Each structure stands twice: as structure tokens, then as C-alpha cells.
Amino acid sequence: MPQSVQPNTQQAALWNDASGKAWVEMQPILDGVLAPLASLVVDAGDPGKGGDVLDIGCGAGATTLAMARRVGNGGRCVGLDISRPLVARATERARVEAVANASFEVGDAQAYAFKSGRFDAVVSRFGVMFFDDPGAAFANIRGAARRGGKLAFVAWRGPRENDFMTTAARAAAPFLPQAPVPDPDAPGQFAFADGARVRRILEGERLVVSQSRTGGRAVSDRRGSSDDICHPAGAGRRCVARGRPGDGRKDHRGLACCIQAFRGGRKGSFHCRLLAGHRAGLKVV
């Protein structure tokens, strides 16, 4: 599947550096936390035995591998991700776990030159919120699926509903330079928080939404460690890296606040949205 033009350059830089490396390092933890949501996507997007599936934003490969097992040896699941470190990790996992019908490629789904109508289903576990032009991205994805093929993905709802992802940042905020107010529709983990906007994007590209579910669950009350909080991509690390020059004491107080926020033992929760359906001639379930 050759790549054409290259959009999403900021996301490519991010996921090929700190964020991609962080997800590789934390892959066992993240896969464990997100496993119930990956199962929802696999169930909703399952095309049946022998199906050919595309996994958008496959990360370290958990959903791709699960879907490859689901469709069986007569089928195939291709994982696509913009991050070379994550694709390398996913490829190694497929080799170690002997999942021969799973493969992985580096690329951006917004501009990838897919073979028209190749896939029976397109799925994603938190991989479709990062496009700078989501309409163009879903138009391209639509062309990759056969008529009547399934589309199923899960995306985060808003930051207020996902406190486990914002606790450290809120604790660190007083010790960091003031950040601009983020654009809620900008590429990022919460870009699909507005369900009505997501539906408009999909329906604008002739993707018929036949199921839209919202839900949440408690995050494990496992107490966070300083290693988790001080990760290179985390708010605690930014406290040290971005603090005012010569004010290292304040920087480390901010870091301590991040650690304390997680060591408090308070349970967090996450809330997401599962959308499924089909092409208008792709089945979004």
C-alpha cells in the first residue's frame, strides 16, 4: 500500500518521538487497561471468518492481533500506524506470538493510497482522532472498504469524563507556563468528544452510522508509581523540563504534586464512544 502525500506532520513528529516511545515502553500496562474497549471494537467490526480487516492507528498491535485471531487463518488483519516505533513493536509481537495473518505498515490513513474496496472491515481503537482533516481521512478510509463493509471504532469522550488522563496535568498546572486554551476540535485524544460532530463527519462521507454507544468504566485502583508519572511524555516530566530557569525547587514541587495525585489511591474512570456503521453501499455497525 504506497503512501501518497504527507499530511499530519505534527502528529507524525510526535508519534515518532516521545509519544511513540512512551507507548512502546508502557505497552503492557496500556493494553491491559484498554483491553475491554479493544474487545468491543473487535466484536463490532468482526467481518466473520476469512475476512480482510484494516486497523487504523494500530499502535503496538493489540487490536490487530486480536482481530487476526478472530478472522482465522483464511483472513487477514493489516495494522497501519504513523509511528515507526509502534509498528516495529507490533511486528515483533506478531512474530513472537506466531500470528502469521497479521501484518503492519507505517503510514497515515488520511493519505494512504489504499487499493479500492480491499477490506471487509475497518476498525480502530483510539486511532482516528488525530487527523488534521478528518473528512478527507474518512473519505480515504471509505474507499479502502468494499461496499457493505463494516467500520467500527472507539474514541475518547471529553477530558472532564476521563480524569485518569488529566489528573497529573491538573496537578502540575500551577508549576508550568500557562498553556493556551486548546481547540476542542484540534487533532488529539479528545478531538472526537463531540458525538454530533463525529456523526456529521461520518455522514458527510456517506458512512451510515447504525450504532453509537457511550459508556465508561473505573480504572484499576492500582497505585501509580513515580515511573508512571515521570514518563518522558507525562506531565511530571514536563514540570522539570518546562519550569522557569533557575527555579528547580519549584519544578520539583510540581513533580511531587503529580506523584502525590497518583499515589493518593483515588480511583479514576474513563469514558469513550463506540461508533459503528457501514459504507453507503461500508457498513458502520
Rank of each mutant, 00 (worst) to 15 (best):
P182A: 08
F192W: 15
Q178W: 04
D133V: 08
G158A: 06
Q178C: 02
A169W: 14
V154N: 11
N162V: 08
A193M: 11
G148Q: 15
A144V: 02
F175K: 03
A186Q: 07
A186G: 05
M165W: 10
F130T: 00
A137W: 09
N140W: 04
F164A: 03
F131T: 06
L176M: 04
R160T: 15
A179H: 05
D133I: 07
W156D: 03
A139P: 13
A193W: 05
A145S: 15
G158N: 13
P182T: 12
P159G: 07
Q178H: 05
Q178I: 11
T166V: 10
G135P: 00
R125C: 00
P187W: 14
R157T: 12
G143M: 05
T167L: 13
D163P: 14
A168E: 11
P187K: 04
V181I: 10
F192C: 14
M165P: 02
F164W: 10
F190E: 12
A169V: 09
A179F: 09
T167K: 07
K150E: 01
P182I: 10
F192Y: 03
F153P: 00
A173R: 13
Q189I: 14
F190T: 00
D133Q: 03
G188E: 05
P134H: 10
A144T: 01
P187G: 05
D132S: 11
G195Y: 07
R147T: 10
T167S: 11
A193D: 07
A186T: 05
M165I: 06
R170F: 06
W156Q: 01
M165V: 04
Q178N: 01
N140T: 14
N140S: 14
F153M: 12
G148N: 14
A152M: 07
T167F: 12
R157F: 03
G158R: 11
V154W: 06
Q178K: 11
A136N: 15
G135K: 05
D183F: 13
A173T: 13
F192T: 11
A145W: 02
D194Q: 08
A145R: 11
A169Y: 13
V181Y: 13
Q189H: 09
G195F: 09
F164Q: 04
F175M: 10
M165G: 01
T167N: 07
D163Y: 10
F153N: 01
Q178S: 11
P184Y: 06
P134T: 12
G149W: 01
V181F: 12
I141Q: 00
V181K: 11
V128L: 07
R125A: 02
A139T: 15
V128D: 00
F131C: 12
R170W: 07
A145T: 14
T166F: 10
G188Y: 04
A171E: 07
A179M: 12
P182Q: 13
L151A: 12
R157D: 12
A179I: 06
F138L: 06
A137P: 02
M165C: 03
T166W: 12
G188M: 04
D194P: 13
G148W: 15
P177K: 03
P180G: 02
P180M: 08
A168F: 15
G188H: 03
R147Q: 10
P180Q: 12
P177D: 01
A172H: 00
R146Q: 07
P159T: 10
D133F: 09
R157A: 10
R160V: 10
E161Y: 03
R147W: 04
G158F: 08
R142Y: 15
A144F: 05
P180W: 15
G158C: 13
A179Y: 11
D132Y: 10
L176A: 00
R157I: 05
